[in-house]
Simulated assay, not measured.
Amino acid sequence: MTQLFILQLVCCTITAMLALHLAMASLQVRWKQQRYEISRWLLCGAMLLFSIHYFLQMTWGFRGQGADVGAVFNIMFYTPVSFIIALSIINMESTKNIVYRYCLRGAAAYTLIAIVFVCGVIQNGSLRIGSLLYVMLALFVASMAYFIYSIRYEIQKRKKKLLEESATDLMPYVRYAQTSLTLLYISAAFMPIVILFNTLLLYVGPLMLLIIVFFVHSFVSLGYYISPDDNIINEQDELVEQIDNADIKDEELKVQAPQELLSQERLKQIETALRKWCEDGMYKDCNVTIYSLAANLGCKKYELTEYFNLSEHTNFRTWLSDIRFNEAIRIIKNNPEYNNDTISIECGFSSHTQIYRIFKQKTGLSPSQWCDHIRQQQL
Rank of each mutant, 00 (worst) to 15 (best):
1 M>G: 09
1 M>L: 07
9 L>D: 07
9 L>F: 14
18 L>F: 08
19 A>C: 15
22 L>W: 13
23 A>Y: 13
26 S>C: 06
28 Q>F: 14
28 Q>R: 07
28 Q>W: 13
32 K>Y: 10
35 R>I: 06
39 S>G: 14
41 W>E: 03
43 L>T: 06
43 L>R: 05
45 G>P: 08
50 F>K: 00
53 H>E: 09
53 H>C: 07
55 F>K: 00
60 W>R: 00
61 G>Y: 10
62 F>W: 06
73 F>H: 03
74 N>V: 02
76 M>G: 06
82 S>T: 14
83 F>P: 12
98 I>P: 07
100 Y>T: 11
103 C>V: 14
106 G>A: 03
110 Y>Q: 06
111 T>G: 12
114 A>V: 13
114 A>D: 04
115 I>D: 06
115 I>F: 13
115 I>R: 03
115 I>Q: 04
117 F>Y: 11
118 V>P: 04
126 S>Q: 08
127 L>C: 06
129 I>V: 09
132 L>I: 02
139 L>I: 04
140 F>P: 03
140 F>S: 01
140 F>D: 02
141 V>N: 01
141 V>P: 04
146 Y>F: 12
149 Y>F: 14
154 E>R: 14
154 E>V: 12
157 K>T: 15
158 R>Q: 15
163 L>H: 14
173 Y>P: 09
176 Y>H: 14
177 A>E: 10
178 Q>E: 12
180 S>H: 05
185 Y>C: 01
187 S>E: 02
190 F>A: 00
195 I>N: 01
196 L>H: 03
197 F>C: 00
198 N>W: 02
201 L>W: 04
203 Y>K: 00
204 V>G: 00
208 M>A: 00
209 L>Y: 02
209 L>S: 01
213 V>T: 03
215 F>T: 02
216 V>G: 05
219 F>Y: 14
223 G>R: 06
225 Y>L: 08
230 D>K: 11
233 I>W: 15
241 E>G: 08
241 E>K: 09
245 N>A: 10
249 K>W: 13
249 K>T: 10
252 E>Q: 01
258 P>V: 00
259 Q>V: 07
259 Q>R: 00
264 Q>S: 03
265 E>A: 03
268 K>H: 02
271 E>S: 10
273 A>T: 07
276 K>S: 10
278 C>S: 12
279 E>C: 08
282 M>Y: 15
283 Y>H: 11
287 N>M: 09
297 L>E: 11
302 Y>T: 01
302 Y>W: 15
304 L>S: 08
318 T>C: 05
319 W>D: 03
323 I>H: 06
324 R>S: 03
328 A>T: 09
328 A>M: 05
329 I>T: 10
334 N>D: 15
337 E>Y: 08
338 Y>R: 00
341 D>P: 01
342 T>F: 08
343 I>H: 02
344 S>M: 02
345 I>H: 07
346 E>G: 01
348 G>L: 01
349 F>K: 00
349 F>G: 00
349 F>L: 00
353 T>D: 08
353 T>A: 05
354 Q>G: 01
357 R>D: 12
358 I>T: 11
359 F>A: 00
362 K>P: 10
363 T>W: 07
365 L>G: 03
370 W>F: 12
370 W>K: 01
370 W>H: 06
371 C>M: 09
374 I>W: 13
378 Q>R: 08
